[in-house]
Write a protein that binds this DNA or RNA. Structure first.
Length: 191
DNA sequence: ACACTGATTAACT
DNA sequence: GTTAATCAGTGTG
């Protein structure tokens, strides 16, 4: 199980978002190993994407991470919850993939205590839920996921699933192409 | 000081 | 299944 390298992220964000499905998000906290399969993502673009923070806020202290190298982690808060993104494409392009849902695999008791919920479906089935379950916050912002020991994404050729596509969640004026990708029939996607 | 946000949750039918 | 109060950081005045 290899850690995905920078080349993986150096492509269009819709392509990266699609290929991230079935990969494994891995977190290490002290001696604990926490992981989950990625089952839902959304792609965000730089130009002509009104839903992206890049277009909404411009280049500020808070959004600076979006202009970083591919693999740069971009964390921001909305509605009191942390959103976890990884920057794609090339530097200075400001496109990224938002992680929306995971299927919990290792460290489920750790997630349960972070979330204060016992139903396994309630642990990572939403962008704010999975950051709470994995203990991901602003301290990861602007770091590169290819270089960290305590947070990484590893390859895992879990391909036995059907790809679902839809419009992005909570975006009123969305792009013509559906940019939300998910594992069809998974119990662990949001909503 | 106030309103905005890509969400979550409890508390209902 | 559906709604309404609420989370907290950031931008605008």
């Amino acid at each position: 199980m290899d850690i995905l390298n920078r080349e993986f992220y150096s492509r269009n964000s819709d392509k990266v978002a699609k290929e991230l499905l079935g990969k494994l998000l891995v977190r290490k906290v002290r001696d604990r190993f926490i992981s989950g399969f990625i089952v839902e993502t959304e792609a965000y673009f730089d130009k002509d994407d009104p839903a992206s923070r890049a277009a909404q806020n411009g280049r500020t202290e808070m959004t600076e991470a979006m202009w970083g190298e591919p693999g740069t982690i971009f964390v921001y808060m909305v509605h009191g919850h942390w959103m976890f993104n990884v920057v794609t494409d090339e530097k200075d392009k400001a496109s990224a993939v938002l992680f929306r849902a995971l299927k919990p695999l290792d460290g489920i008791d750790f997630m349960r205590s972070n979330r204060n919920k016992k139903d396994i479906r309630e642990l990572c089935s939403g962008p704010g839920k999975l950051t709470q379950a994995f203990d991901i916050d602003k301290s990861f912002n602007r770091k590169n996921i290819c270089e960290l020991k305590d947070l990484s994404i590893t390859d895992y050729n879990f391909k036995n699933f059907e790809l679902g596509r839809s419009k992005r969640v909570g975006v009123s004026e969305d792009l013509d192409e559906p940019m939300r990708f998910f594992v069809k029939d998974s119990k662990f996607v949001s909503r």
